[in-house]
Amino acid sequence: MDLQRRIARILGPVIVAVALSEAANMDIFAEQTAPVVYLNGAVLFTAGVAILQAHAAWRRDWTVLITLAGWVLAAAGLYRLIWPRAVQATEGPATTAALLLLAAAGAYLCWRGYRR
């Protein structure tokens, strides 16, 4: 199995689970403390850099989602590391749309990773 499919098999389900669980629990984000946001940033940044180390290819096919995911994770993690006291997410149509887009991208990565 190629590297892109292996990453998609991990990244797809994780993105779907995170998007759906964040959508279901938006109220808890208003209560987060700066140290928790900072720790989350460290995890996101590490995951993003790890993905980019394994796959940083800008191709005109589905594998570009893996590269984009790596950059988004690294950027989101860096944002949370630098500004842990900033507002991270608020309920609203933009957040809902972003989470739906993430869930769809994760589902697509699942499909690409697990299909025969």
Rank of each mutant, 00 (worst) to 15 (best):
L68H: 11
V72A: 07
D27N: 07
R59M: 09
L3A: 01
R80T: 01
D27H: 15
P84A: 11
L11V: 05
G41C: 06
E22A: 14
A89R: 15
R60I: 07
W58T: 05
V87K: 05
L101N: 09
A75P: 07
G41V: 02
A98I: 06
P13K: 14
A34I: 02
F29M: 05
A24M: 09
G77T: 03
T95Y: 09
F45K: 14
P13E: 00
G77M: 01
L73E: 13
F45P: 00
L52K: 11
T67H: 08
A107N: 03
G77E: 03
G12K: 00
A89G: 02
A105C: 09
R5P: 04
T96W: 11
A104G: 09
A105I: 10
R115V: 01
W62N: 03
I66W: 01
A57Q: 15
A94C: 00
I51Q: 02
W111R: 04
C110G: 06
A47K: 04
G92I: 05
L68I: 10
I28Q: 13
A54I: 07
A34H: 06
A105N: 14
A54Y: 05
Y79N: 06
Q4W: 02
V87H: 12
A56N: 14
R9H: 06
L3N: 09
G48L: 00
R6V: 11
A57H: 12
L68P: 00
V37A: 12
Q88W: 13
I51T: 07
M26E: 13
R115A: 12
L99W: 06
